[in-house]
């Protein structure tokens, strides 16, 4: 081996690489373990007793449809018309063209494919309505119509809804909306009663531990988003780090959260992919510090170690 080995590298050379032959001090591993665990138990119990933990109740389609009927109706219309965020999400839920996040030719989202297909009109509106004891005849009307007719109905109804006083379905001026007002009205009533939560969640099974459809439906509306924004939980509020209320959250996600706040990430359509990529590279860099010359020499340039081993250096 030619040249000098960097003493800051991970190579097993010099004093760092050989067993210590100098002075020793007494050390009791089990005592340290016992003291360490005891201190942490005391701290944990005190913090748990004094500060507790938050448990903000979950929201349901029922609470949404009752608290903000107009928002629920507008979202349901978008689900029926296929214009909601979920309906145009791309993989893994839909095969919407051009919806994926890419970096150049790298398109991992398309590569994964539509693994969890969601047809919002069927899954969120029509199938639940078909479970009603008095099935609305408008379902058949909707299904018999052409795509163009359906789109025209939902578009004009969505516009009329947004212009109605308080955006309330009952205040919508009459117009050519086809079966849409009846379908949305029935779905809203179904949601307000709580029946819609059960139907969307169960998906025909007694047991279901998969909440994908319910979460996607909730997320398409403003109600859920506003509740999260009130608690500072959204991505552009550093929400990734935050817990509800005053309890500390996942502060260790600070860097992940930070990148979402600054350009170019904050305005990029592929922000998620960019930030994930940057974080992966940074984590890899941290793991590989011993092998990266300029990184592994930082502790030598900024001599914090003089404080750690102050006794040793004093007695040289």
């Amino acid at each position: 081996m030619k040249g000098k080995v960097d003493p800051m590298s991970a190579r097993a050379v010099g004093i760092a690489g050989t067993p210590w032959r100098g002075k020793l001090r007494e050390y009791d591993l089990f005592k340290e373990l016992t003291v360490g665990v005891s201190v942490m138990v005391v701290l944990t119990v005190i913090l748990a007793l004094v500060l507790g933990s938050p448990d903000e109740p979950s929201v349901t389609l029922k609470s949404w449809a009752n608290a903000q009927t107009a928002d629920f109706a507008a979202t349901a219309t978008a689900e029926l018309g296929g214009t909601s965020e979920t309906a145009q999400y791309g993989p893994p839920y839909t095969n919407t063209k051009g919806a994926t996040q890419t970096i150049g030719a790298l398109d991992l989202q398309s590569l994964s494919g539509v693994q969890l297909p969601v047809n919002t009109a069927n899954a969120f509106v029509l199938d639940p309505l078909a479970t009603l004891p008095n099935q609305p005849t408008e379902i058949a009307t909707w299904r018999a119509a052409t795509k163009a007719e359906q789109a025209k109905w939902t578009d004009t109804y969505a516009t009329a809804l947004s212009k109605a006083p308080k955006s309330a379905p009952l205040n919508v001026k009459s117009g050519n909306y086809g079966p849409v007002p009846a379908l949305i009205g029935d779905l809203t009533a179904m949601a307000q009663s709580g029946a819609l939560d059960g139907v969307i969640q169960a998906q025909g099974n007694a047991y279901n531990l998969n909440y994908t459809n319910e979460i996607l439906f909730l997320g398409d509306g403003q109600y859920f988003q506003n509740l999260a924004a009130d608690q500072h939980l959204t991505g552009d509020q550093w929400g990734m780090m935050n817990e509800t209320g005053g309890t500390p959250g996942q502060s260790w996600l600070w860097l992940f959260s930070f990148f979402y706040q600054i350009p170019p990430f904050s305005t990029a359509p592929n922000a998620d992919l960019l930030v994930v990529g940057v974080m992966l590279i940074l984590t890899l860099l941290l793991a590989l510090v011993p092998f990266i010359p300029w990184l592994r020499r930082i502790p030598k340039w900024i001599p914090v170690h003089r404080l750690v081993w102050k006794d040793y250096y004093r007695k040289r």
């Binding site: 933990s53 780090m241 817990e243 209320g245 005053g246 309890t247 500390p248 502060s251 600070w254």
Partner: peptide, 27 residues
């Protein structure tokens, strides 16, 4: 300390930086 409990969150901000008081205390 009690601000870190199950009370309404307190948020501090400087420009693009916003931090919840509980997280700030931890850091």
């Amino acid at each position: 300390l009690l601000a870190m409990g199950d009370s309404p969150g307190i948020y501090l901000g400087w420009g693009v930086f916003t931090i919840q008081l509980g997280n700030l205390i931890i850091i």
